[in-house]
Amino acid sequence: MTARIANVTFFAENPTELARFWSAVMGYPEPTGWDPEDVAELRASGMTDEEIADRAEAWDQNPAHQRFYFSRYRHERRQRNRVHLDITPFDDRRASREELEAERDRLIALGATEEKTLLGYWGPYEEFVIMMRDPEGNEFCLQ
């Protein structure tokens, strides 16, 4: 047996809005909320609508694609993320600088912010990375 990543989980002030952002980033359908049957079961177990809204997901229901999960976090963040996502616009090749800049512009239009651009080398390999943050400040890199 081997392990696999079940979810990439984010603590969020607004889980629904962050799920919408990451759905648009990943090309997933816009989230429409939890399945009505699931909501009925959650309510029957005693959960309020506010408690149900404390969680959201971004996913296209394809098991080969990563699911993003968002859980309301009501505490102040005291440190920077120790883990972040690296994303790329293509799954079959490296993006050019121009393609990364175009993707950066798309993500900014969705609500991301650009932190800085890193240009360096790892041995003989050029590394061009755009450091960004999602609408709630979670770090990610575009490469």
Rank of each mutant, 00 (worst) to 15 (best):
D35Y: 15
F128P: 08
G120N: 06
F10L: 06
T48V: 09
S23F: 00
Y73C: 10
A3L: 12
G123L: 06
A109P: 02
P31Y: 03
P89W: 03
I108R: 05
I87K: 00
E126N: 07
R43K: 10
R72W: 05
A95R: 01
A58S: 08
R80K: 13
N62H: 04
R72P: 03
C141Q: 06
E103M: 14
G120C: 13
L100D: 05
I130R: 03
A102S: 15
S71T: 12
V39E: 06
E17L: 05
D134G: 09
A19Y: 00
E127Q: 09
D60I: 04
K116H: 14
N81R: 09
R77Y: 10
G123I: 08
R133Q: 01
I130Q: 03
P15G: 07
A44K: 15
T16A: 15
R55E: 13
N81K: 07
L118K: 12
E103R: 05
R97I: 10
G27S: 04
D35H: 14
Q143H: 12
A6M: 10
D49V: 04
I130F: 07
T2A: 14
A109G: 08
D92F: 15
E127C: 09
E76A: 11
R82G: 12
P89E: 07
F68C: 03
F140T: 02
P63S: 12
P135E: 00
W122V: 11
R72A: 15
M1C: 07
R97K: 15
M47K: 12
Y69A: 07
S71H: 13
Y73M: 07
D35G: 07
A44E: 13
E115L: 07
D54F: 06
S23V: 02
E13L: 06
E50Y: 03
P63E: 12
R104V: 06
V129Q: 07
D35P: 13
